[in-house]
Computed example of a mutant assay.
Amino acid sequence: MKKAAVLKRLKTAARQAGLEYREVELTNHTGVIVGATRSTIGRHSEMPDQAAKKFWDQFASELGKGWWR
């Protein structure tokens, strides 16, 4: 799955939930902030589907369990 598609899906869900969404460029990763939850994602253009689901799962406290399904 493309990194841009992963971030776009997260951004759309955050906006629908009325939460703040920000991306911050760090040294080797991109920092993503949704509401009060922070996480990082590598700068690779592609990522495995399992990795994308685990990344999205980090935001389950903000967006609800299984929000990406």
Rank of each mutant, 00 (worst) to 15 (best):
A14F: 01
A14Q: 00
R15I: 00
Q16Y: 02
Q16T: 08
A17D: 12
G18D: 12
L19R: 07
L19K: 10
Y21W: 06
Y21H: 03
Y21V: 08
Y21I: 09
R22K: 07
R22H: 05
R22T: 09
E23R: 07
E23P: 03
V24Q: 02
V24T: 01
E25I: 05
E25H: 10
L26R: 04
L26K: 09
L26S: 08
T27G: 03
T27M: 04
N28W: 02
N28I: 04
N28Y: 06
N28F: 06
N28G: 01
H29D: 11
H29T: 11
H29Y: 12
H29P: 08
T30K: 08
T30Q: 09
T30H: 11
T30F: 07
T30A: 04
G31Q: 13
G31W: 13
V32S: 06
V32K: 08
V32Q: 11
V34E: 06
G35Q: 12
G35D: 13
G35I: 14
A36W: 13
A36G: 12
T37F: 14
T37D: 15
R38P: 15
R38Q: 14
R38Y: 15
R38G: 11
S39H: 09
T40C: 07
T40W: 10
T40Q: 13
I41G: 07
I41V: 15
I41S: 10
G42A: 15
R43S: 10
R43N: 12
R43H: 09
S45C: 03
S45V: 01
E46K: 15
E46A: 11
E46R: 14
E46L: 08
M47T: 10
D49C: 10
D49F: 01
D49K: 02
D49Q: 05
Q50W: 05
Q50D: 11
Q50L: 05
A51H: 06
A51I: 13
A51R: 02
A51K: 06
A51N: 09
A52W: 01
A52V: 08
A52E: 03
A52I: 05
A52G: 06
K53A: 12
K54S: 08
K54A: 07
K54G: 07
K54I: 08
F55N: 10
W56C: 02
W56I: 00
D57K: 14
Q58R: 05
Q58T: 04
Q58I: 00
Q58G: 02
F59W: 01
F59I: 01
F59P: 03
F59G: 12
A60D: 09
S61H: 07
S61K: 12
E62W: 10
E62P: 04
E62D: 08
L63P: 06
L63D: 08
L63A: 05
G64R: 09
G64K: 13
K65D: 09
G66N: 10
W67V: 11
